[in-house]
């Protein structure tokens, strides 16, 4: 594992360059009372890569994401983000540092339109205050328009122009997932955490979502950490894969290495792979 960390790989076919380690998790342990959700897990995420976390249900994948963006606080272990160690952090701090995420169960703001949902994603970049909003004149309006332009770029990018004024509650599942991605992208994150972005989708929707994830990674250089159960997708788009089982790390490496790892086959992939 140390050797693998030492080398900096490039992927010539897309021209994007895998950079330095951006997020380094060391010996993370997370317990809820007596239940050990994560035990002594260490891995890192490099800049611009697509890093997947796989494992059977209950392996601790979502807990891992929650640790990364400060929703859960591990009892042991250290997390280095851009080389800076962090102890206690809340999701708000994670967001200010440029970490955005989507949820396994869609967590959109149901009563708001698609546009408002995505605009909310930019709230950290909004500097005007309540009193300026009350007047909706001058700075507040300028800011609203400036951010609207950015949001429209995201809308174009994800091809959801036709639904921008629709309340999200009325959208089909696949599109809701896409809007949630749009809301995360609107924050222009450096690190994007995706929790099962393709769960419950049909083949076409999955293809679209894969394309968007690859495009985000390619065009914006966003680092992506991905949890997904569709092994075809994971092995196809990931640069490196980490495998969890019962809160322990059982494998880590490129898709090919992981695919052929006997422990991973036994725990998750099954013999037919």
């Amino acid at each position: 594992m140390m050797n693998e960390m030492a080398q900096t790989a490039t992927l010539p076919e897309s021209g994007r360059r895998i950079g330095e380690v951006i997020l380094d998790l060391k010996n993370i342990s997370l317990r809820f009372g007596g239940v050990k959700a994560l035990t002594d897990i260490s891995f890192d995420v490099r800049e611009h890569e697509i890093r997947s976390i796989i494992g059977p249900n209950g392996a601790g994948k979502s807990s891992m994401l929650n640790v990364m963006n400060g929703v859960y606080h591990p009892q042991e272990g250290t997390i280095l983000f851009r080389g800076e160690p962090r102890q206690q952090m809340d999701p708000h701090m994670a967001a200010t540092q440029g970490i955005a995420r989507t949820f396994q169960n869609i967590a959109l703001f149901k009563g708001m339109s698609v546009l408002d949902n995505i605009m909310t994603g930019r709230n950290l970049k909004m500097k005007t205050n309540l009193f300026q909003h009350a007047l909706f004149w001058g700075a507040a309006q300028r800011e609203e328009i400036e951010h609207r332009k950015k949001v429209e770029e995201v809308i174009d990018f994800l091809e959801i122009q036709s639904i921008r004024k629709t309340p999200v509650g009325r959208l089909p599942y696949g599109l809701q997932k896409r809007v949630e991605l749009a809301r995360a992208l609107a924050a222009e994150p450096t690190l994007l955490l995706l929790d099962e972005p393709m769960a419950g989708m049909n083949v076409e929707e999955k293809q679209d979502m894969c394309r968007f994830i690859l495009d985000v990674n390619d065009q914006f250089g966003t680092t992506i950490v991905l949890i997904e159960h569709d092994m075809g997708v994971v092995m196809d788009i990931s640069d490196r894969v980490v495998v969890l089982d019962y809160g322990k790390k059982i494998g880590d490496g490129t898709p090919d290495e992981v695919k052929n790892d006997p422990d991973v086959i036994a725990a998750y992939l099954g013999a037919s792979h």
Partner: peptide, 13 residues
């Protein structure tokens, strides 16, 4: 956002 989904609201800052 806080009304509809407070956890998600917190995650986007």
């Amino acid at each position: 956002a806080v009304r509809d989904m407070d956890v998600a609201a917190e995650v986007i800052g």
